[in-house]
Nucleic acid binder design. Structure first.
Lengths: 213, 213
DNA sequence: GACGGATTTCGAATGCCGTTCGAATCGGCG
DNA sequence: CGCCGATTCGAACGGCATTCGAAATCCGTC
């Protein structure tokens, strides 16, 4: 029934996720390789998912859900700790960027799936809408807005959203352009310790939400 | 002589640049289409550039040089205006992010070449080193460091480089993830006026280089 | 236990891709 | 004219994702 609850459908997704993590370049990920890794044939991909791209989208969505769950869990924790007072700004920022940073530095995580997936949206025309729906789903980011609004009530929602967007840009730069980051900091920053990196990011992002001097 | 000063080599680069700008997806860019657009054959690409990827790299490098020249020209202008005093912080930041923003909003510019090119580095394994050499060339960014250091002498060079890197991340987010930016700001920010966007970015980035309250 | 329709798997075929390669063509110089 | 390097071309080749009809498998029903 063309579903993805089937056993081989699951095996295809797992194989695709594994290959996507190991592959250093996307051209290493071919339908045939996925099929072999999953003990199936390329036709199985078409049958269960419609196309290779939709399989990848399904895998990416699955990984995204895990990351977002972690983010929102940290946000809830930050909110609960201080309730009914507004949460701690630095803790909220750490909840926003922390999971991405930790995943990107953990070689056993599936973070490569996400970074490959975003660059894939620019490659494929037909599936792009379907891809963008996943990438541009920012509901889990919007969840941060009300909390930040309580922390910085003098900013309107547009200002908050804009700063949130900027924070996400910094996050992407650090996770996806490591060579640039290394060169610009003269190789004198320890970019391997996630907590250190997160602290450095908080140090830069937090002032965006503080009242100007 | 396998050079790229030949007439058809130039026509190939121009055709590739045009197609790269018009194509909304990279799969639209094929060697055969480039050849047709340049009144040549696919073999000509191999002959003059070695491969399609190297042709694309040559085109991207050409566009990068134009953008960087514009950036450095603005930086020099900012430095000259206040010399021998340190340049104005906001003007330096505008020099850093302004050209990218203006190009990305100008439909006649070749900015799509750059955004496509960066996502291409993740797709191809063999040429990746060659690609990364172009992408990770941050010499033109490093040129900003001494000026920023004069503006914020209490920051060491690592701090300056880190903040510069963060500013570039914000720039990338705004130029490359417009849908996200729109949703997060509730579609209530005018993202079509480059000067307005630049002002908003300066507003967020400048505090990174100001002494904390 | 055997049947029959729906579901799933398979393998061959299709069309497009980038690239290769030998032959044909061009252009200037003796 | 005749030569030779530089350039262009067209016909391959292998690899890719995908399609499709036939086989195989599964499972409720007789």
């Amino acid at each position: 029934m063309h579903g993805r609850t089937n056993l081989t459908a699951i095996r295809l997704m797992d194989a695709c996720e594994n290959l996507l993590c190991e592959a250093e370049a996307l051209e290493d990920l071919t339908a045939r390789r996925i099929a072999v890794e999953a003990n199936a044939t390329p036709s199985a991909i078409a049958y269960h998912f419609g196309s290779q791209e939709e399989l990848i989208a399904a895998v990416a969505e699955r990984v995204y859900r895990r990351l977002n769950a972690e983010r929102l869990s940290l946000l809830r924790k930050a909110a609960d700790r201080r309730a009914p007072d507004p949460p701690d700004l630095e803790e909220v920022i750490a909840a926003l960027v922390g999971p991405s940073i930790r995943w990107s530095l953990d070689p056993t995580s599936s973070y490569p799936v996400l970074s490959h997936f975003t660059s894939m949206a620019k490659t494929h025309r037909e599936r792009a809408p379907h891809y963008r729906r996943i990438i541009d789903d920012v509901e889990h980011h919007r969840a941060f807005i009300p909390h930040l609004k309580r922390i910085a009530p003098w900013l309107d929602e547009v200002d908050i959203g804009w700063r949130l967007n900027c924070a996400l840009g910094i996050r992407s730069q650090v996770t996806r352009s490591r060579p640039r980051t290394e060169v610009l900091t003269n190789y004198r920053m320890n970019l391997d310790d996630p907590e250190l990196v997160i602290a450095r990011m908080v140090e830069v992002i937090a002032p965006m939400f503080r009242r100007m001097a």
